[in-house]
Design a protein around this nucleic acid. Structure first.
Length: 291
DNA sequence: CACTTGACCTGTCCGC
DNA sequence: TGCGGACAGGTCAAGT
């Protein structure tokens, strides 16, 4: 699912593929794709040129030369796929691929650029959204004011991480790092992976995790996120990058989706349990709950 | 304020 | 084969 590494991968793809292009046409078949946005979206988008692609937490920001920006959240099943040249070989043809089959029934919004290339916003479960807001107002919206620091920022210190996590003293450590106001960008996959790497049981209460362990946890969060970016993200089911291609991180995952398999450290069988209402993967031997 | 739960959606899988 | 229900997980509103 799109977490920080996936959104970062899409960002890099869109930066290469769409900056400098001018929007010539916008169509959308579902009003909730643009919640809380002026109804005449098209009026604000037509003839606008893409100037820059940014990311904050799991939110993509497409800056336009009109002093407006598009904020996009992919939530669980969102995709942003750019198609430069439409080639239709037909389903089943060896040259056919995802991008040649768009739009499909999950397509919610289509942007056509003046060079006739397209950007498709697909979202099977319709949780994702796009918002059009003045670029200058982005820092003032609720989300941006509340969201925590970027974990890969060099400025984000262990001291600040520990201070922020400790605000959630009585909840589980997994719930704490999933909280986007504590730090930005960690979702279910990287929570499980970083907690395993730090040898912390996800259900451990924050107050029972030592500073030393939290210090290790932040290092592992950074390492896991960076590795995933290097691998183009995780494609569990739906995720693809801006070119419609899957990421390969899950081939390197040590616990996520590995229930029933042997722990790489101790050969104990990996278990799937429920923590913070989420499916959670743990090695019961490497990750002990501290009472 | 801290914390948890339910709602938002659709596709897939499992058991009967 | 069909059908109901559980499940998948990011975020926010509403609940305790």
């Amino acid at each position: 699912m799109p977490e920080l590494p996936e959104v970062e991968t899409v960002k890099r793809g869109l930066a290469n593929l769409t900056v400098g292009k001018t929007i010539a046409e916008v169509s959308h078949d579902w009003d909730k794709s643009f919640p809380n946005t002026k109804t005449d979206v098209k009026h604000f988008l037509l003839q606008a040129k893409v100037t820059e692609i940014k990311r904050r937490a799991k939110v993509l920001i497409i800056e336009l030369d009109t002093k407006y920006s598009l904020l996009i959240h992919l939530k669980m099943t969102g995709q942003l796929v750019y198609v430069g040249e439409v080639k239709r070989f037909g389903a089943g043809h060896p040259n056919d691929s995802l991008i040649n089959q768009l739009p499909d029934k999950s397509t919610r919004v289509v942007f056509r650029f003046s060079d006739n290339s397209h950007l498709f916003f697909n979202d099977q479960r319709k949780f994702g959204w796009i918002r059009l807001i003045p670029t200058a107002e982005i820092p003032n919206i609720d989300f941006m004011r509340k969201v925590g620091p970027e974990p890969l920022s060099a400025k984000f210190t262990s001291k600040e991480f520990i201070q922020r996590v400790r605000r959630r003293a009585n909840t589980t450590i997994k719930a704490a790092i999933l909280d986007q106001t504590v730090l930005a960008g960690v979702g279910n996959i990287y929570a499980d992976e970083s907690l395993f790497a730090a040898k912390i049981h996800p259900a451990t209460r924050v107050k029972n995790v030592s500073d030393r362990k939290l210090n290790t946890l932040l290092k592992e969060i950074k390492a896991v996120l960076q590795l995933s970016i290097d691998k183009g993200g995780s494609s569990d089911k739906n995720y693809v990058n801006a070119e419609g291609k899957k990421g390969s991180y899950l081939g390197f995952a040590k616990v996520f989706r590995r229930e029933g398999q042997a722990c790489i450290n101790c050969s104990t069988t990996i278990e799937k349990i429920r923590v913070a209402t989420r499916g959670t993967h743990v090695c019961p031997k490497c990750q002990k709950i501290v009472q």
